[in-house]
Amino acid sequence: MAFDKSEVSKVAQLARIKITSDEIEEVESRITEILHLIDQMQSVDTDSIEPMSHPFGGTQILRSDTITEENNRDELQKIAPKVENGLFLVPKVIE
């Protein structure tokens, strides 16, 4: 499958990764090579095969509906880049 510069930009945007015009060439060629490796998969017929998401068939465990956590805001926000009045601050969100 072809992976061109416009795909690079689209994917970079989705992943919120900035790719400069200097980098785009290399990113494109590297990823194209990797996709070439990945495309070896297409040689096998897997129509009747069930996809496998987890190594072993298991069942989700359930947690009882109890409050086990206490307010620890001050401690947790010590490592935040920017905080005011208990809120995490980010550049203005425009809806």
Partner: peptide, 29 residues
């Protein structure tokens, strides 16, 4: 960054079946 981009691409609309789901099937094989 490269791996994030590959993963993003493999899950993106139109490629999920050919990449992600295919890989999950191969995983079973």
């Amino acid at each position: 960054k490269r791996r994030i981009m590959i993963g993003t691409y493999a899950l993106s609309a139109g490629y999920y079946d050919a990449y992600y789901q295919k890989a999950q099937k191969i995983r079973r094989l």
